[in-house]
Amino acid sequence: EPLWIRPDAPSRCTWQLGRPASESPHHHTAPAKSPKILPDILKKIGDTPMVRINKIGKKFGLKCELLAKCEFFNAGGSVKDRISLRMIEDAERDGTLKPGDTIIEPTSGNTGIGLALAAAVRGYRCIIVMPEKMSSEKVDVLRALGAEIVRTPTNARFDSPESHVGVAWRLKNEIPNSHILDQYRNASNPLAHYDTTADEILQQCDGKLDMLVASVGTGGTITGIARKLKEKCPGCRIIGVDPEGSILAEPEELNQTEQTTYEVEGIGYDFIPTVLDRTVVDKWFKSNDEEAFTFARMLIAQEGLLCGGSAGSTVAVAVKAAQELQEGQRCVVILPDSVRNYMTKFLSDRWMLQKGFLKEEDLTEKKPWWWHLRVQELGLSAPLTVLPTITCGHTIEILREKGFDQAPVVDEAGVILGMVTLGNMLSSLLAGKVQPSDQVGKVIYKQFKQIRLTDTLGRLSHILEMDHFALVVHEQIQYHSTGKSSQRQMVFGVVTAIDLLNFVAAQERDQK
Rank of each mutant, 00 (worst) to 15 (best):
I238Q: 05
I238S: 02
I239E: 04
G240W: 03
V241S: 13
D242I: 00
D242P: 01
G245A: 04
S246C: 03
S246G: 03
L248I: 07
L248W: 00
A249Q: 05
A249T: 02
E250P: 10
E250F: 04
E250Y: 07
P251G: 08
E252S: 11
E252F: 06
E252W: 09
E253L: 08
L254G: 02
N255T: 00
N255W: 03
E258K: 15
Q259W: 06
T260V: 12
T261H: 12
T261K: 12
Y262P: 05
E263S: 02
E263L: 08
E263R: 03
V264F: 02
I267S: 02
I267R: 00
I267K: 02
G268P: 01
Y269I: 02
D270H: 04
D270L: 01
F271N: 00
I272D: 05
I272P: 04
I272F: 05
P273E: 03
P273N: 03
T274W: 00
T274D: 03
T274K: 05
T274F: 00
V275E: 04
D277L: 02
D277P: 03
D277H: 03
R278V: 02
R278H: 02
R278Y: 05
T279L: 15
T279F: 10
V281I: 04
V281G: 02
V281W: 02
D282S: 15
D282T: 09
W284G: 00
W284L: 00
F285I: 13
F285W: 03
F285P: 03
S287M: 10
N288K: 11
D289V: 00
E290N: 12
A292H: 03
T294I: 14
T294L: 06
T294F: 15
F295G: 08
A296Y: 03
A296W: 00
R297N: 01
R297A: 01
R297Y: 00
R297I: 03
M298R: 12
L299F: 04
I300C: 02
I300G: 01
Q302F: 13
Q302M: 15
Q302P: 04
G304K: 01
G304T: 00
G304C: 00
L305E: 01
L305C: 02
L305G: 01
S310T: 07
A311Y: 04
G312D: 01
S313R: 03
T314I: 09
T314A: 11
V315Y: 05
A316R: 14
V317N: 09
V317H: 08
V317Q: 08
V319R: 02
A321F: 06
A322R: 02
Q323I: 07
Q323G: 10
E324H: 13
L325M: 09
L325Y: 02
L325E: 02
Q326V: 13
E327Q: 11
E327R: 15
E327F: 09
G328Q: 08
G328P: 09
G328H: 09
Q329C: 15
Q329K: 11
R330E: 10
R330H: 14
C331I: 07
C331V: 03
C331D: 00
C331E: 01
V332G: 00
V333Y: 07
V333S: 07
V333F: 12
I334F: 15
I334W: 00
L335I: 04
L335E: 01
L335H: 00
P336G: 05
P336H: 04
P336S: 11
V339F: 06
R340E: 07
N341W: 00
Y342F: 06
Y342G: 01
Y342I: 03
M343N: 04
M343K: 06
T344W: 03
K345R: 06
F346M: 06
F346E: 04
L347F: 04
S348K: 13
S348P: 09
R350E: 04
M352D: 04
M352L: 09
M352S: 02
L353K: 11
Q354F: 08
F357K: 05
F357I: 05
E360D: 14
E361V: 12
E361G: 13
E361M: 08
E361H: 07
L363Y: 04
T364C: 08
E365S: 13
E365H: 14
K366D: 15
K367W: 15
K367S: 10
K367G: 15
P368A: 08
P368Q: 06
P368V: 10
P368F: 08
W369N: 07
W369V: 09
W369C: 08
W369K: 08
W370L: 15
W371C: 08
W371E: 09
H372P: 06
Q376L: 15
Q376I: 07
E377T: 07
L378Q: 01
L380N: 05
S381Y: 09
S381G: 13
S381D: 13
T385W: 03
T385P: 03
T385S: 10
V386Y: 12
V386K: 06
L387A: 11
P388H: 09
P388L: 14
T389Y: 12
T389L: 12
T389N: 15
I390K: 06
I390G: 15
I390E: 06
T391K: 05
C392V: 15
C392P: 11
C392R: 03
G393C: 14
G393W: 11
H394F: 14
H394K: 12
T395R: 08
I396P: 09
I396L: 14
I396M: 13
I398K: 12
L399E: 08
R400P: 15
K402D: 10
K402C: 09
K402Q: 14
K402F: 09
G403V: 14
G403Q: 10
D405Q: 09
D405W: 13
D405T: 10
Q406M: 06
A407K: 04
P408S: 06
P408C: 06
P408L: 00
P408V: 04
V409H: 00
D411T: 15
D411C: 15
D411Y: 13
A413G: 15
A413F: 14
A413K: 14
G414K: 09
V415D: 15
V415H: 11
I416N: 07
I416Y: 10
L417F: 15
L417G: 14
T421E: 08
T421N: 04
L422H: 09
G423N: 10
M425Y: 08
L426A: 12
L426H: 15
S427Y: 14
S428D: 12
L430D: 06
L430A: 14
A431S: 06
G432T: 05
G432F: 11
K433S: 08
K433D: 02
K433H: 14
K433W: 03
V434Q: 10
V434G: 10
P436N: 04
S437L: 15
Q439T: 13
G441V: 07
G441N: 14
V443F: 15
V443R: 10
I444S: 15
I444R: 14
Y445H: 08
K446L: 13
K446C: 15
K446R: 15
K449M: 12
K449F: 10
I451C: 03
L453K: 12
L453V: 13
L453W: 09
D455S: 14
T456V: 15
L457Q: 02
R459W: 11
L460P: 01
S461Q: 09
S461G: 14
H462V: 15
I463S: 09
E465M: 03
M466H: 12
M466S: 14
D467L: 07
H468I: 14
A470S: 15
A470W: 03
A470H: 07
V472W: 12
V473A: 12
H474S: 10
E475N: 11
E475F: 09
E475K: 13
Q476C: 09
Q476Y: 12
Q478T: 15
Y479E: 12
Y479S: 15
Y479F: 14
S481Q: 11
K484I: 13
S485G: 07
S485W: 15
S486K: 14
S486Q: 13
Q487E: 14
R488H: 15
Q489W: 12
Q489K: 13
M490I: 13
M490A: 07
V491L: 15
V491N: 12
V491D: 02
F492S: 15
G493S: 14
G493L: 15
V494H: 03
V494Y: 03
V494N: 04
V494P: 07
V494W: 02
V494E: 05
V495T: 14
V495G: 15
T496E: 07
A497H: 02
A497E: 05
I498H: 08
D499M: 00
N502V: 11
V504M: 10
A505V: 14
A505C: 03
A506C: 11
Q507C: 13
E508N: 11
R509C: 15
D510K: 11
Q511K: 13
Q511I: 11
Q511A: 11
Q511W: 11
Q511L: 11
